[in-house]
């Protein structure tokens, strides 16, 4: 019973860690640069969860003030993550632009092939 309680109380953190580790694995194990960037995006969403999860209060509601409600979730992590998402897409676009340029220069978006091309040169 104790173990079950522990799992339920920390379930969100486990999901966060699973997503984080999955993103990390994709970034390390896959040589394809598009896949690497998608892996980074997954890692990033795990950070969103890591910030939003502690801000939630059970029985609370979204932080839009109304006399009908008393308990609100913490608005501060929402603000931080809201801006982080938009910055995330801006940096993703920068990464994609680099991938496009690498493809023009090397004719490949595989990490291994670009390394090989460098070694030949």
């Amino acid at each position: 019973m104790q173990a079950f309680r522990l799992v339920v109380e920390y379930y969100n953190y486990f999901v966060t860690i699973f997503l984080m580790v999955a993103g990390l694995y994709v970034v390390i194990a896959r040589g394809n640069m598009i896949k690497k960037l998608v892996g980074l995006a997954i890692f990033q969403t795990s950070v969103y969860l890591l910030y939003i999860t502690p801000g939630k209060i059970l029985g609370g509601t979204a932080p839009i003030l109304d006399p009908a409600f008393k308990v609100y979730s913490n608005p501060l992590p929402h603000v931080l993550i809201l801006t982080a998402i938009v910055v995330g897409v801006a940096t993703l676009a920068l990464g994609l632009a680099l991938v496009a340029r690498i493809n023009e220069a090397y004719g490949s978006i595989e990490e291994d092939e670009t390394f090989e091309r460098d070694r030949e040169a």
């Binding site: 938009v86 897409v89 801006a90 676009a93 994609l96 632009a97 496009a100």
Partner: peptide, 16 residues
């Protein structure tokens, strides 16, 4: 800024 940047990003990729 955000609408301008997102549209400019799309234009940059599409033009390429």
């Amino acid at each position: 800024t955000v609408s301008g940047t997102m549209t400019a990003l799309f234009y940059a990729f599409a033009e390429r």
